[in-house]
Design a protein around this nucleic acid. Structure first.
Lengths: 202, 202
DNA sequence: CCTACCGATCGGTAGG
DNA sequence: CCTACCGATCGGTAGG
């Protein structure tokens, strides 16, 4: 829940982060200059240093504010469904709607992995872990329909479902026939559900 | 199948690519300088330009020579198994053995996505597509055990299985209890198999 | 004495 | 394949 910037200083800081965020997504960290960030924020380069010590601090602030789980968790929380199958389908649908059409939604993580060797991931994990645990509680409600699999595996595989879909979509998606693209995610969810649920005769 | 470098020029070119490859994995494209590459290759900056027109051409050569599918396809081709279940487990096991302990194995793709906005992915796809199709033929052999799912979906989901595992491993793997780490990939394969195979009573 | 920002420039490095 | 060097731009900081 981001605070509404009120003072002039807070507004300038938000404009710096917005500018940096867009540029990082497009060009990466080392591909973005302080002058580009300043230009996008409508101030001079020197002005940035009243708000951030250096470029890396800007990246960290942007990473914590806009990492992908921020978009995935609200979708999971909003999901409805009396059975685990309906719940998973609804959660998946909401997630793909909120992030599916933004091919750059993982770029901040990629930058972190490549340009910082993942050194900030520990802190990031500690920030999001409690939220993921809370959202994962929903899985337990359909317990009797599930195969005997550890809960962390179920949750990890559910999140992995999106990486599975999004990564293959990024890499080969625009080359595939439309037949398979439109329904690909539905099939992925279907495979996941058949993978975690006890067999039923329907 | 890389040619063994024989002439002096070919050896120098290979040294430039080796040096660049290591640096790109560690620091990304814009985070790597031509002088670093030259130093690692044991030559001067100007000498690089006898072999490559510019820095981007070095990246392209490294990307085509070392993209992740190069490591995944031989593992798939070597896989054995009379049933699709045994085949998939063997293929998955070989793939995770060849790439599982190299957390940077996707970095070239991440660099391509972030620092080049994926503009070389079309060419990359055209290079690897025939090999993927060939390797995927193996799936057809266990046809009668499979649920009614389109072949491209099965193959895409199988490749996605690795992104699913590797991405979650990268992001939260070293934070999780060892209990779940060791067996996580086996569970992932198990969920995938239950997802694509017809139910059996065993 | 503060926050916010400027024009100008620092020492080094970029691709070529 | 090297030395030497270019136009420009890098991240960061000076005094006011």
């Amino acid at each position: 829940m981001p605070e509404e910037p009120t003072t002039k200083g807070e507004r300038t800081q938000a404009e710096i982060m917005d500018s940096a965020h867009k540029l990082f997504l497009k060009n990466g960290f080392h591909g973005t200059s302080m002058r580009q960030i300043a230009e996008g924020a409508g101030i001079a380069v020197g002005g940035i240093y009243n708000h951030f010590d250096n470029k890396e601090e800007i990246f960290l602030a942007v990473l914590y504010a806009h990492h992908p789980i921020n978009d995935m968790l609200p979708a999971m929380r909003a999901a409805q469904g009396n059975t685990i199958e309906i719940f998973v389908r609804d959660a998946a649908q909401r997630m793909v709607e909120s992030i599916g059409n933004r091919p750059e939604f993982l770029n901040l993580i990629f930058i972190e992995l490549v340009e910082f060797n993942g050194k900030h991931l520990t802190t990031l994990f500690e920030m999001i872990f409690p939220q993921v645990v809370e959202a994962a509680q929903r899985f337990l409600e359909g317990d009797d329909q599930l195969r005997d699999l550890p809960m962390p595996i179920l949750v990890r595989a559910f999140i992995g479902l999106f990486f599975s879909y999004v990564m293959t979509e990024i890499m080969v998606g625009n080359q595939l026939p439309n037949d398979y693209r439109d329904k690909a995610f539905d099939y992925f969810v279907d495979i996941y559900l058949h993978g975690i649920l006890k067999p039923v005769q329907s």
